[in-house]
């Protein structure tokens, strides 16, 4: 994504190349061009652009991708933290 960069080395995206069947579905769904076809192998070329939306992991038919996706705004994370520590009952966001 041109002109916008977020923190480096934070994404939880993991790829298990052993499981990958190189179907290219992750390339199709990722809005940040994190994956690319290298010869006949799909690889991660842009790890730091990942926004952890979870689309690739959700659509990977071989379960080769894992990412911790979810609420990404400060207010939402605070509410989540409060709920996890049993200080609040329900979570509303977005």
């Amino acid at each position: 994504m041109k002109g916008f960069k977020y923190l480096r080395n934070v994404t939880t995206l993991k790829m298990d190349s052993g499981k990958c069947i190189n179907c290219s579905k992750c390339i199709e769904v990722c809005p940040h061009h994190v994956f690319a076809l290298n010869g006949d192998k799909v690889t991660i070329i842009n790890l730091d652009s990942c926004m952890e939306c979870g689309a690739c992991a959700k659509n990977c038919p071989a379960a080769a991708l894992h990412v911790d996706s979810g609420v990404g705004c400060a207010a939402g994370l605070i509410t989540e933290w409060l709920r996890d520590h049993r200080l609040l009952a329900k979570v509303e966001c977005c």
Binding site: Y6, L7, D68, G70, G72, C73
Partner: peptide, 18 residues
Amino acid sequence: NFTGCTPFTSRSGVKKEM
């Protein structure tokens, strides 16, 4: 808080910032 509306910030990044 605006990170919740942007299409390029990651949850882990926001956690780290916070």
